[in-house]
Simulated assay, not measured.
Amino acid sequence: MSRPQCPRCLRPTTHCLCALIPSLDSRTRVLLLQHPSEVNHALNTARLAALGLLNAQLVVGEVFEDLPALLNPPGYQARLLFPAEDAQPLQAYSPSDLPLLLVVPDGTWRKARKLLHLNPLLAALPRVTLAAGAVSRYRLRKAPGPGALSTVEAIVQALQVLEAPQSFEPLLRPFEALIEGQIAAMGEEVFQRNHGGD
Rank of each mutant, 00 (worst) to 15 (best):
V30Q: 01
G75Y: 13
S94E: 12
L58H: 02
G61E: 03
F82T: 09
L33K: 00
E62W: 03
R27K: 15
S94R: 15
T45Q: 02
N72G: 05
G52H: 04
N72L: 12
V30L: 14
V63D: 06
P83T: 11
N40D: 05
N55R: 15
Q91R: 15
L17F: 00
R79W: 11
P74A: 15
E38M: 04
C18W: 07
L43H: 15
A49K: 00
S23W: 03
A56C: 06
R27Y: 01
N72R: 15
P83D: 06
I21V: 15
T45A: 02
A92L: 02
S94P: 03
P68A: 05
A49Y: 08
V59A: 03
A42E: 13
A69F: 13
Q88M: 13
L81W: 11
L67Y: 13
S23Y: 08
P22H: 08
F64H: 09
L51I: 08
L54K: 14
A49D: 01
N72V: 09
P89L: 10
Q34L: 09
G75L: 10
H35T: 01
E85F: 06
S94M: 10
L32Y: 07
E62I: 08
A56G: 07
E65K: 12
R29V: 01
E62Y: 02
V59F: 00
E38T: 00
P73F: 14
